[in-house]
Each structure stands twice: as C-alpha cells, then as structure tokens.
Write a protein that binds this DNA or RNA. Structure first.
Lengths: 370, 370
DNA sequence: AATTAGCACTCTCGACCATCGAGTGCTAAT
DNA sequence: ATTAGCACTCGATGGTCGAGAGTGCTAATT
C-alpha cells in the first residue's frame, strides 16, 4: 500500500489531496468539476474524471453511488496523511487562547488536564481526551502521621513522583502521640520505597507485630497506601466536548453519535486508545485501523508530552474519518509543546524558583468520617 | 391556578393523570379512546372527549393539531406533580445498584459525587448533576508543616469541615526544622479559626514580622490558605450522562439537544439551577417555570441531602417536560436518603466505628514543582 | 343534565411517482 | 495524452393521494 505514493503521478496526488481537502471542508462528495476548479491549473474535468476513476480503482477514492462525486477511502486518507498533508500553523487567535489557558491556571494538574481537554475540543470541534500517567514505578517516599486528637490522626504520604496524598482517620480506640511516633517510624521502615504489589498481607502482619498494633491501624495505613499507589499511576482521564460530535454531519444519526460517546465515556476503553511512541509525535489512526469496533468509521489523533519527572501526558481527539487532520495536528503540536514547556519535561531542573514565585501546582482534599 | 385541583371533578383528575402517564410512557399525543381503555371504568370515549376538551380550555391539556390527541401543558404537569402523582417505589434492582454504589467505593467525596451522578443518570435515563458545598463558614482548624529536605516542606491543613488539604513547597532558600516548628506555631496562632476574607495583607506582614520571615514563606502559606478556603466551599459539580438526552424523542433535534447540553456544561449556570429548601425535599421546576431560557421546555428535579458537618449535597436531573416525575422522584429520594445515611448527616455522631472498619473517605494529591 | 353512539370533518403520515440535476463513463476528435 | 460532447444513472425534491387516527357536534338515551 505504501508504494502507492511512489507510483502516483504528481497530478494524481494533487487530485487526491484536493478531494480530501474539499471533502473535509464540505462533507459532500467531490466531483471532477469541483476538483478542476480548485486545482485551477487549466486541466479539464474530463481528464480529472479519468484520473479519479484510476484513483478509485487503486482504492484511494470511493463513490457513494454511481452518479455522485468521490470521497476519500480510508486508504486515501492514510496516503494523504502520510505524504500529502501540508503542515499548517494555527491561527494567532488560537495560539493566544492556548497560551492564556496554559499561563492562566497552571494550578492543579488534574484541573489543567481538564482545561486542556476542553480547549482542545473547542478549537478542533471534536471531542478530546486528556490524560497523564506515571511512566516509572511509583512508591511512597515518606510517611508522616499527624496527631489531631485522641481518636483522630492524619496520614500524609509523599510519593516518589512528588505527589502528596493524605487521609483523615477516625478511630474508636484511643491513640496517643508516642504511639503515632513509633508507628510512623515503623511505617517509614516497612512501606516506603516499595511498589504496590510488594505490600503483602504477610508484610502487614509482621509490621503489626513490630509495632504492637492490635487495633488494625497498620492495616488501614497499608490499605490506604495500596489504594493511592494504584491511583497515582494515572493522574486522570477526561473526555471533553463530546457533544461537539453532533456538529458533524456524519453523526447526525443520533444512534451513531451515542455509540461513540458512550464508548468514550468508558475510561477503560479510553486507556486502550492508540498512543504515540514518544513525546511530540502524533499518532493517527484512521477508520478501520482502529481496533475498537466503535471507532471503525472514526479517526483518532493523539500526541504525547512530557509532564515532568516520570510523568507523561496524552491529548487526543476523536472525530469522523473526514477529520481536518492537518488543522488538528497543528493544534495538538502547539498544545503539547506548550505543556512540555510548562510542566518542564526535560529542562525543568534548571528552572529558577524562589519562594515568592512558587509554582502553584497542588492541593487536595480529604473528607474524614465521624 | 392552584384551585384548578379543587374545581376538577374526580373523573377529570383521573383523565388528566392518565393522559400524563400515557404520554410520559409513549411520547405520543393521547386520544380519548386510549384514555378510556387505560381507565377501564366503562366510560365511553365520547364522554372523555368532552372532558378533555374542557381540560384543554382550562389550560391543562394541549392539542398539537386538530386531529391529534392531547398532551399535558406545563400547567397540566404542575397539577399532576402537585396533586395527582402517586408515590412510587424503585425496583429492587435499582435499589441494589444504588446500595452497591454507595457501599462500594464510598471513598473520596469528589469521586463519590461522580459515581452518584453517573448512576442517577443511568437509572433515570436523564442527564444528572451532582454537587456538594459547605453551608457554614469554613476555616482552618490546624496547620502542620512537614520537613522534607532543606529546600522542601509540606503544608498540611485540617479544615473545620474535616477536610484535609496539602501542598508540597519547594524553595530556593534553605529552611531548617526549627524554623518550621516556629513557623508552624505562629501560623496556628494567626491563620486558624478565621474566615478567608480575614486573611489580609496586613495580617500577613505582621505574621511575617513575628516569625522573622523574609523569604516569603508566610505569604506562600497565606496564599495557599486563601485558595483552599475558597475551594473548600464547593466540593464539586459534575454533569453525567448528558448523552442520555438523545434517547428522548424531544431531543431528536440535534440543535435542541446541543443547546441544553452546552448549557449544562457551564458550571456557573449549573450553580443557578433551582435548589430545594431543605434536605430530603424535592424541588421540581417544569418548563417555563425555569428561569433559564435554555430550559424553557425542559424540567428539572433536584433533591438535597446532608453530607456531614456543614456540608450539603445536591443531586439533580434535567429532562424534557415529559419527564417521568414519579419515577425520578423515587430514585432521587432513595439516593439522597442513602447518601445522608452514608455521609452521616444527622445521626452520624452516633455511628459506631472501629479501626478495622474505618470509613474510607479520603485522599488527595498534590504535585510539587522542581 | 349527563352520557353515548354515530358521523362528518381535519390533519398527519407514508407511499408512490415524476422531474431535476449533478456527476459519471465512454467515444470520437484533436 | 487530453478534451469536448453526450447518453446514462441515481439521489434528491416535491407533489398527489389514500389511510388512519382523532376530534367536535348532534341527536338519541338514561
């Protein structure tokens, strides 16, 4: 298939490109006359007609019915994306919006992710998803137990990826500060620096014995630890702007739209979406190239970015195969570049910070029980 | 209008009720014959016809066109909801699902909210929104500063509503444990127990002087404090299952559906949606009763629940005026009751807990900067 | 006075059909 | 190799028609 590009005359390539671009714009089959006009280069529609017939027999174009124009096949799109698509810059307005979103509330990671997804969706007019996850193994770097009152304490855990988690614990048994101190020491000895799967029941019982705990506090801390380590690997996934699908004529069929939106709202499925190999690279899967049945006549574009120590982020967009690949690519690149810069992928260690200008990522909460 | 109910014969009430119920079920105008059959009480369709004509002239029913059946007007729905609707119990299956959601991962408040919204939407088949917010004034109950290394520490703040927030702070200046201890004491003296608006620049400078801080650490803590107090008032708002709208024939018009979904995805607007006076009560606004233009031909049902000390939650549902008010009411009640119980509104203090069965609400995270 | 059977009338909806036009493939001429 | 010309195909558009559902009214019944 890849050698199609080689064997195609330049004119045929131009025709294919034109068909794709016109079809992307108008969502209607493109006729030979329209191509001739768009091309402008004095070639008659009859010539184009025969070229288009050939492109069709190569499987790059399709005809919805005999007397209609042509639309690109998924192979056609693929060839377009690989060889024909021209790089595009995003508009100043769009760049401005992205910049201000990134500058603006670069606050909490989860929220930023949210904003990014929302903006991407809005700019591209397709549903977008954004997620971030740890690349390496996450473990607890240290524990602190804060005594609140005789039946209450707070667990604070600093993770290896600079994330802090906490939990407010209420007991019916009493607990005193010395006990907490002891507990804290033992926990730091036993549960830090190890991956989640190494926190076994055996480890828990031996720790309980070491600290002389019969009330199950150690078990609670262990449960909390496992829970947060699992959670820490994925910072979040969010789909934004799913309704945008409805703007595109291929999803005028409500059922079709619903099927995809439902699919997208399943986080598990989302995690299985195609993902680029490395940061900055854009991965495009077109129509039947998608493994998921639900996406068989849609396309997915995704880009990766570095989000600091051991964290990688992903922004993706889902749309009809008649997607504006070039525009979306431009948006995704710009976005990913901005994010890498902001979250300091590679160059981050050299950033100068001072207390007055402390980076403001953080904050989370916890509700205790009575 | 309220006296309609009084002046209506029982038969007319029954007819109205039947029309509403049949219409809710089938989404098609209801004819006199269908009512006669549903009613079953040997009354002829002709009689019903004249009654329906009267109900129409009272503004309780409407006729899409001359030769069609009747549909309830918004006044008709209102009367139905106020006087005619019969309490309904939710199915065992549904109860089971709600229970397991509440039991299951009653973990983090935000996540629970999410789950609840999602489930509500699924069970009712309408988009749902869930939010929770502090009713009283929130303030910091205590601070703890945890020393990590010479340029890093963690702020842990316990809020008056049993929420714990944290932030990882990196400095370029050095800091030593004794300084942190001192800082901690001063912070606990100055910033605890007061509302967000009382943390003024003046207070900050005076605190800085007291602790001998020139590097701006106090300012950072103050900023963090303000930020989290503001945030603490609203735990979150989330709309789930917006696509469900598309299932209902009144939203087959894609534009109409989009308008509402767009409206619902604006958090600010959401906060302005009608809300019941007190916990357990269901507030229903029908069609034009809604202030927002976008909801003029939709209905909203919402219920409040107690979520523990000073926190109230809200679950709501948005749908066409042809909503299954009775079914939704049943679901909302059950849900709210479950939540009140779980999050321990009133009776919570008397709940028995032991360490082995610690309530599992919590956990949050924070990303530091390099 | 209320109820009801009967009937004429209204209006929507789907089926059927003719027309229109965009676009094609082919052929013959350049 | 390109192109003008032409016959042909097929969806889209719009109009007509009949069926069916439902109404309102009238006259008869209780």
């Amino acid at each position: 298939m890849a050698n199609h590009a080689m064997s195609l005359s330049n004119r045929k390539k131009e025709i294919l490109r034109t068909v794709v671009e016109l079809y992307v714009k108008a969502a209607e089959p493109v006729g030979s006359k329209a191509v001739a006009e768009a091309l402008g280069s004095g070639i008659s529609s009859a010539t184009i007609r025969s070229d288009m017939a050939e492109l069709e027999s190569l499987g790059l174009l399709e005809q919805p019915h005999t007397s209609a124009g042509r639309i690109p096949s998924s192979n056609g799109y693929r060839l377009y994306v690989n060889d024909l698509m021209q790089n595009q810059n995003i508009s100043n307005d769009d760049a401005e919006m992205i910049n201000s979103t990134l500058d603006g509330h670069a606050i909490e990671q989860v929220r930023l992710l949210d904003e990014v997804g929302r903006l991407t969706s809005r700019l591209t007019t397709y549903p977008a998803y954004a997620m971030a996850s740890a690349t390496g193994i996450v473990c607890i770097a240290r524990f602190d137990l804060i005594y609140v009152d005789c039946s209450t304490f707070i667990i604070v855990a600093l993770l290896s990826n600079d994330t802090v988690k906490n939990k407010l614990v209420h007991l019916t048994t009493n607990i005193e500060p010395p006990m907490l101190t002891k507990l804290s020491a033992v926990l730091n000895a036993s549960f830090t620096g190890i991956a989640e799967e190494r926190i076994t029941p055996a480890l828990i019982t031996s720790t309980e014995r070491a600290v002389g705990d019969s009330s199950g506090i150690v078990a609670v801390v262990a449960g909390f630890t496992i829970e947060l380590l699992v959670e820490a690997k994925t910072i979040g996934t969010r789909v934004s702007g799913a309704i945008n699908l409805l703007n595109h004529p291929e999803f005028r069929d409500v059922d079709k739209a619903q099927r995809i939106i439902r699919y997208l709202s399943d986080e598990k499925e989302l995690a299985r979406l195609p993902s680029p190999e490395s940061a900055g690279e854009i991965k495009i899967t077109i129509g039947p190239e998608n493994l998921a049945d639900e996406l068989r006549d849609s396309s997915v574009m995704a880009i990766k970015y570095d989000a600091g120590s051991d964290i990688q982020g992903l922004i993706g967009v889902v749309g009809p195969t008649r997607m504006d690949y070039s525009k979306v690519a431009a948006h995704l690149s710009y976005m990913a570049q901005g994010l890498s810069l902001l979250l300091g992928g590679i160059g981050s260690d050299s950033l100068q910070l001072n207390a007055a200008n402390i980076i403001n990522k953080t904050g989370d909460d916890n509700i205790g029980e009575n």
